[in-house]
Design a binder for these strands. Structure first.
Ligand SMILES: [Mn+2]
Ligand SMILES: [Mn+2]
Ligand SMILES: [Zn+2]
Ligand SMILES: [Zn+2]
Lengths: 142, 142
DNA sequence: TTATACATTATAACAATTCTAAACTATTGA
DNA sequence: TCAATAGTTTAGAATTGTTATAATGTATAA
């Protein structure tokens, strides 16, 4: 309950009134030491577990999308099966572990951000994202 | 009809027998001057239009996936709404035009392939892909 | 030719996401 | 204070992309 007023600000600035359900979503998303990646379903399940009561999926979708539109969350596309969201909204790159379906932030010592030498005429670059797919090397298992 | 035997080879090596429907798919995918990006739905619509008869969506999905598994096609993830496929199977990067939802290959003079300085322990890098999202610059429209 | 394997198709099943409309809650302003 | 109003939650329906199924059709080979 430390940063309740922060959550209220986030909700209000996203055009949402602070309700019990939305504050719970905020707590799970933003009251953490580290940023993380999640799917809507993960999030909904965690909420249900912690609240000891169901929260409607529709509310989760709506709130997450409002935060995404405001820029408080980022959507990451790994495959077309489902959407991943990221509470790290800075420009950064990812490893995707194909064994575990886990998304891991790249740090600066792991990757050099690629340099764009020439852009499409008349367009503005909104983001440059690198996705590195990794998996256990089964080529030469002993 | 120039490269019919090539198509038959592609199908056979993907474990599929060359049928009228599959050859038509091959023609649309591979009988071109330039590689391109498509969705399953685009492709199915083009086939139906050119054949003047419906082709089952299932056949399109099956054939495209067989080609993808064999490496004759690549799947690209832009968003989780739908899958994009690419007839350019070389390692390359993309611009995504958010105005038109168009995917455009990056050429070597447009981007420098990012350097991975450190990998996840015990994992093998399967792909490194850059996605550059661009859109019309509406900041300073006159 | 006939048996067998394989292919196509329509349609059902499925999963993620979005929509809807009813019930509920908070806010406003007489 | 309390009705009117605006906004919220919710269950469930609808939609969409994708995959599975099972019946029918076609090619191949003994
Ligand atoms: Mn996929
Ligand atoms: Mn999307
Ligand atoms: Zn991240
Ligand atoms: Zn491409």
């Amino acid at each position: 309950m430390i940063k309740n007023s922060e959550f209220i600000d986030k909700l209000r600035s996203s055009g949402l009134r602070p309700t019990k359900q939305r504050l719970k979503i905020c707590e799970l998303l933003f009251n953490r030491d580290n940023t993380f990646h999640f799917t809507i379903n993960d999030l909904a399940k965690n909420i249900s577990r912690q609240l000891n009561e169901k929260i409607s999926l529709a509310t989760v979708y709506n709130t997450v999308h409002a935060f995404k539109n405001k820029g408080y969350l980022k959507e990451i596309s790994i495959n077309s099966d489902k959407s991943y969201f990221d509470t790290n909204t800075t420009n950064h790159h990812h490893f995707f572990d194909q064994d575990t379906n886990e998304l891991i932030d790249c740090t600066d010592d792991e990757i050099e951000t690629p340099k764009i030498k020439k852009n499409i005429l008349g367009k503005k670059i909104n983001s440059v994202e690198v996705l590195i797919k990794v998996a256990t090397d089964n080529q030469n298992q002993k």
